[in-house]
């Protein structure tokens, strides 16, 4: 029970991770693949942020009143990773636009069929 409730943030992260990964693999629609990829990445961000959190801790600003602080480093790392994620999404969407212009479709299996001949 403690594992289930006490670590619920990790369970959420893993559930999101699997959902995102499943969407990436199972879906033929390129936009949905990008959405899945985003969910997958965000789950990792949540994982990182949870790691840095301390129950009862505050933001790491020095003050006499507080003695417990959350670790700021994972949060900073995730800011960088969010930027990277946005760049990836933007590039993926740009490629999808160009694929749509070239093929008139954003469904992976339809596109592969068009290139058979």
């Amino acid at each position: 029970m403690e594992n289930l409730l006490g670590l619920y943030n990790y369970w959420v992260a893993i559930a999101l991770m699997m959902m995102g990964f499943y969407i990436v693999i199972a879906n033929g629609n390129l936009i949905r693949k990008i959405i899945g990829l985003n969910i997958f990445q965000v789950s990792v961000f949540i994982l990182f942020i949870s790691m840095g959190y301390l129950t009862g801790g505050t933001a790491p600003i020095y003050s006499e009143a507080y003695t417990q602080y959350s670790a700021p480093l994972p949060h900073v790392l995730i800011l960088t990773a969010i930027v990277v994620g946005i760049a990836t999404t933007a590039l993926g969407l740009a490629l999808t636009v160009r694929i749509y212009k070239a093929y008139g479709s954003i469904d992976e299996s339809e596109i592969s069929e068009m290139d058979q001949d």
Binding site: K33, L91, L95, T96, R98, E108, D115
Partner: peptide, 9 residues
């Protein structure tokens, strides 16, 4: 384009 997209994913 499709090759780049698959590589991206």
């Amino acid at each position: 384009l499709l090759a780049a997209f698959r590589y991206l994913i």
